[in-house]
């Protein structure tokens, strides 16, 4: 199958500080989505999925706050909070983002199984690349 896409630009949204203003976050996501859309000839499609991504991330992070809360300005990083936490954080968001993207592009549910296959394959691909990027990131300055 020729179906797995890597939209690792969502890593940019995942790495935003936890206490980022949701309004600013969504505007950034909107602009980022439009930029991606320019190259995919799909104006609005990636912008739509990205805005939804950041909107949901805001509430998802509240549910996932570790004991003692986040430090102010902290970024949700794999090395800091553990890989299990990171997967729990990233997978559902990437899943929703990819579902919205592929089902909208397919124009509905008439190609359900093909589209679902694309969503899953791409989700795994994207998250794998994100994890690799998280691991090879140079250690933060102290």
């Amino acid at each position: 199958m020729h179906t797995a896409f890597c939209f690792f630009y969502v890593g940019f949204f995942l790495r935003m500080p936890v206490d980022v203003n949701p309004l600013a976050g969504m505007v950034a996501a909107f602009l980022m989505g439009l930029l991606v859309d320019v190259f995919y000839d799909s104006p609005g499609l990636h912008a739509m999925a990205s805005v939804l991504f950041v909107f949901l991330r805001h509430y998802w992070l509240r549910l996932l706050t570790p004991q003692g809360g986040f430090d102010s300005g902290a970024r949700p990083a794999l090395t800091q909070y553990g890989s299990l936490w990171y997967l729990l954080y990233a997978l559902p968001l990437v899943f929703i983002h990819h579902s919205v993207l592929f089902f909208t592009e397919a124009g509905g549910f008439q190609y359900f199984w093909t589209t679902a296959g694309k969503v899953f394959a791409s989700m795994i691909y994207t998250v794998l690349v994100l994890i690799v990027l998280e691991i090879i990131r140079p250690p933060k300055r102290i």
Binding site: M26, F30, P43, G44, L45, A47, V51, H58
Partner: peptide, 21 residues
């Protein structure tokens, strides 16, 4: 509910762009 309304507003622009295209 400004976060929600911003969300709604940006999504509407996106959908309009996509449909128009």
């Amino acid at each position: 509910y400004r976060a929600f309304f911003t969300f709604l507003f940006l999504e509407l622009i996106s959908v309009a762009l996509y449909v128009q295209n």
